[in-house]
């Protein structure tokens, strides 16, 4: 099993596209959900995955530790998501800014219910980690590996993130 995986990586490094697809598809749930919690939309999650597989294909020769393929490619996926989000913001800016936003009356009611809205209010670096930890149920080590930050930082950000989220939702400490 282990051996087969390493062989597949070796073949992917030689430019075998089908093997590369197979490698990603074996953990398709993980990849897709990871992309989804960033993009919040199935279509854009797929877009980000397309971007990822291209980058993986172009750079896989540089991957030294074959066993780290999945966490390496997930880091790439997270970066692709962040790039796309940044680009999406730019598009909105160059378009027209709505003058009359009467929708905010309706939104007020949703806000009290939907945790996502509160998530948006807290700082990006906390939000990202909370989502990975709680929505995807990822281990601290896995988060550290994908985001390329120290384990201690992951732990402290989860702690602070939870406090901030509680503050935002108006929940008092018990």
């Amino acid at each position: 099993m282990e051996n087969e995986f390493i062989q597949m990586i070796e073949r992917a490094k030689k430019g075998d596209k089908e093997v590369l697809i197979e490698l990603i598809m074996r953990q398709k749930q993980d990849y897709y959900r990871l992309a989804y919690i960033y993009m919040k939309n199935p279509d854009e999650a797929l877009d980000a995955m397309e971007d990822m597989i291209l980058k993986v294909y172009e750079n896989i020769k540089r991957l030294k530790d074959n066993a780290a393929f999945h966490s390496w490619s997930k880091t790439i996926l997270v970066n692709c998501c962040k790039n796309n989000l940044r680009r999406k913001n730019r598009v909105i800016l160059s378009g027209s800014i709505p003058e009359v936003a009467y929708a905010d009356v309706f939104q007020m009611k949703d806000e009290q219910l939907d945790i996502e809205k509160h998530m948006e209010k807290i700082n990006y670096k906390f939000r990202e980690i909370l989502k990975l930890r709680y929505y995807l149920d990822m281990e601290y080590e896995a988060i550290a590996a994908i985001l390329k930050i120290p384990l201690g930082t992951v732990k402290s950000r989860i702690h602070t993130g939870l406090i901030k989220l509680k503050e935002s939702m108006g929940v008092s400490e018990e």
Binding site: K17, M25, Y32, L46, E50, I53, Y135
Partner: peptide, 23 residues
């Protein structure tokens, strides 16, 4: 919220789109 996320299915077109992107 995690339960919501884990009930989410991967779209079937994923494999096709990955292949297309590579090609």
């Amino acid at each position: 919220k995690k339960l919501q996320v884990s009930e989410m299915n991967v779209p079937e077109e994923l494999e096709g789109r990955l292949r297309n992107a590579l090609n």
